[in-house]
Write a protein that binds this DNA or RNA. Structure first.
Lengths: 190, 190
DNA sequence: ACTGTTTGCCAACACTTGTTGACAACGGTA
DNA sequence: TACCGTTGTCAACAAGTGTTGGCAAACAGT
C-alpha cells in the first residue's frame, strides 16, 4: 500500500510555532492589529514563511481559529443540571485555550470571523441542544439565548475585562449563571 | 457680561456631518477598519478637515463614542419589574442609535475603547443599580452580571448576528431575558 | 474696499501593511 | 560526489494608513 500518512517533516515544528504565536496575537490584538510581521517575530522566523505555509493572513487565521467546543452529550446529563454542566464546561474550556478569545475579538470586526462564529454556535451548540430538545421550532432559539449569555460572559470577563465580572470566582459564576442557562434550555417557550 | 455662548459657526454643519459618518463607519467596521478617508468621503469633505476639527483618529472616536445610556431612575420602578424595564430600555436605546454598536465593536480591539466601555458600565449602570441596592458589596457584582447578559445580547444580535437571536421579536426577547436580569438584580447573592 | 480669520482642497510625507520572488544553506538519494 | 526538493533569509514592491503644511476661496468686521 502507498504510504498516505505523510511522515513528519522538519517544518512541522515551524508550522506549529507560527500557529501558536498566531493564536496568541489574534487573541490579544484582534484580526487587524495582529500583523504577520509580529506573529513571525514571536515565532522567530521570517514573515515570508507564514505566507508559504498558510497562503495568506486569512488562511492563517482560519487555521488558528479552528475551534471545537467539545460539548458533552447533553442527553446523558440529568435534566435539572444542564445549566450547571454547561457553565462549568465553558469556563474550563476558556481558561486554558485562548482560541475562543481570538475568535471573539476577530468576530467583532472581521466578517469571515463572524461567519465562523455563527457556524460554531449553529453547528456545535445548537446540535448539542438538539440532543435533548428535539423540537426544531424551539431548539435554535434556546441555543441562541444560551449563546447570548455565554458570549456575554466571555466578552465581559476576557475581552472588556469588567472588574466585577473578572473578580468573580468560578463557583460564583456557576451559581449565578447556571440558573439562567437552565431556564433558557428547559423553561417554557415564550 | 462677556458672551460665553459661542454663536453658531459655519463649520458646525461640517463637524456634525463628520461625526455622523464616523459613527456609522465605526459601528459597521470597527476602529481599525474605519479609515479617516472613508469617513471623510461619506461626509463629502477632505480628510484633512477631520484632523483639523478632531485632532486625530483617536480624538474623533472619542467624540463619536460619547454615549449616555439614559437609564431611568430604578428606585422609581416597581421592584418586581426591574428586569423587564431594563430589557425594554436597552432594546429601545439600541435600535435607534448605532453609537453603542460602534463602541462594542471597537472595544474588542482598541484598548481605549475598552476602557471607555468599562467606565460606561461602571459609572452609569452600577450607579443606576446603586439607586435601589445600596449594599456596596453586591451592587457592583449585580451590575456586572446584568452587563454580561445585556452585552451578550447586543453582541449576538447586532454584531455577530446569530440568526435565532436576530429573528426574535422584541417582546420575545423581553419575555426570556427579563427574568434573568430580575434575578441578577434582586436575587439572593451567591 | 481692505484686512484678518475661517473654511476648504490639494499634494505630499513617513510609515506600515500583506505579499512576492530571488537566492543561499541544508538534507537526503542516487 | 552530484543532484534536487525542502527550509529559510533578504530585499523589495504596491497599496493604503494617519497626518501635515501650503494655498485659494469665502467670509466678517472695519
Amino acid at each position: 500500500m502507498t504510504d498516505t500518512a505523510p511522515r513528519a517533516r522538519r517544518s512541522d515544528a515551524t508550522r506549529a510555532a507560527i500557529l501558536r504565536a498566531a493564536r496568541e496575537r489574534f487573541a490579544a490584538d484582534g484580526y487587524e492589529r495582529a500583523t504577520i510581521r509580529a506573529i513571525a517575530a514571536d515565532a522567530r522566523i521570517d514573515p515570508s514563511m507564514v505566507m508559504r505555509y498558510y497562503g495568506s493572513k486569512e488562511g492563517l487565521f482560519a487555521a488558528a481559529a479552528e475551534f471545537d467546543l467539545r460539548l458533552p452529550d447533553l442527553a446523558a446529563v440529568p435534566p435539572d443540571r444542564l445549566g450547571e454542566t454547561l457553565v462549568r464546561h465553558f469556563l474550563r474550556r476558556w481558561e486554558g485555550d485562548e482560541t475562543l478569545a481570538a475568535l471573539l475579538r476577530a468576530a467583532s470586526t472581521n466578517p469571515g470571523a463572524a461567519e465562523r462564529m455563527r457556524l460554531l454556535f449553529a453547528d456545535q451548540l445548537a446540535a448539542a441542544v438538539a440532543d435533548f430538545d428535539t423540537d426544531p421550532a424551539t431548539t435554535g432559539r434556546r441555543a441562541g439565548l444560551v449563546a447570548s449569555q455565554i458570549l456575554g460572559l466571555a466578552f465581559t470577563r476576557y475581552i472588556v475585562r469588567l472588574p466585577p465580572v473578572v473578580e468573580m470566582a468560578p463557583e460564583d459564576v456557576v451559581a449565578w449563571v447556571a440558573p439562567t442557562l437552565q431556564r433558557y434550555l428547559t423553561g417554557r417557550p415564550a
